[in-house]
Amino acid sequence: MRDTILYLKNANIYQKNLLILSNVNLKLERGAFSYLIGKTGSGKSSLLKVLYGDLPLLEGEGGVVDIDLVSLKNSEIPILRRKLGIVFQDFQLLTDRTVEKNLIFVLKATGWKDKFAIGERVEEVLDSVGMGTKKHKMPHELSGGEQQRVAIARALLNHPALILADEPTGNLDPETSNEIMILLKNISKKNHCAILMATHDYSMIKNFPAKTIKCEDGKIFHGDSEELFVINE
């Protein structure tokens, strides 16, 4: 039976005391893939930041991976993020170390200590994104698509039940974007991992239809890709 991995109820989302989204009601089930769409400044990133603890949830109710967002303390944010995978548009890889050492750094920072287990997990996630032969490369030696694959591998390290992806194809060409979308869809299905992906790439949404949440005029709307697709955005 599928269960809720993320929910917001009557939530108001603020950024620097400015109300960005009001009366947000949102639920995502384990293993589901959903898009978060809307124009620049519509509140997509603010909503994601609330979900991974970068902004507080001041009004309403909410929870992510069994952690209450309303009562979330600063000291508990690392615990929340260990249960999530987060993928950014600009990859955010550490440029001074290899792919392998990027991933080792994250595992050690999240409490892994056994050297053999660390090495094994790094191999597993790199193989799962087709980057098993590139672990000794530096980030600048990789293409944009390869860097994003490494970023996705990093997001998978701690077996997350939910991945939050903020414009993961925003810096990629159309062909590479398609490859990343296929990868994300396969990960969601194979790992039974929920994915909430913010995007403004409507061609991607049409090519890979899924349930869609739209931010517009300070509200959110739910529907299928076709229902919420607006040609002039």
Rank of each mutant, 00 (worst) to 15 (best):
N102W: 06
E233S: 12
D201E: 14
F105L: 08
S22V: 01
I13R: 03
A32H: 13
K185L: 11
P56D: 04
V150G: 03
D96M: 01
L58R: 13
Y7D: 07
A165M: 08
Y7Q: 14
S34G: 00
S188P: 04
Q148S: 04
G85K: 05
G144V: 08
T212Q: 07
K214R: 15
E179I: 09
S71G: 01
D224S: 14
I77G: 01
L183R: 07
V87P: 06
M1E: 12
W112E: 14
L162Q: 03
K108H: 02
I187P: 08
G41N: 10
H200N: 11
V125C: 08
G31R: 05
S225A: 15
H140D: 12
T199V: 11
E124D: 12
R154L: 08
H192C: 05
L28S: 00
F221I: 11
V64Y: 05
T40I: 10
T199A: 10
F221W: 11
V70M: 07
S46C: 13
K137G: 00
G132V: 10
H140S: 09
D201P: 03
K219R: 15
A153D: 10
I205L: 13
S128Q: 12
R82I: 08
P209N: 05
E216C: 08
K108A: 03
P78S: 04
K211V: 01
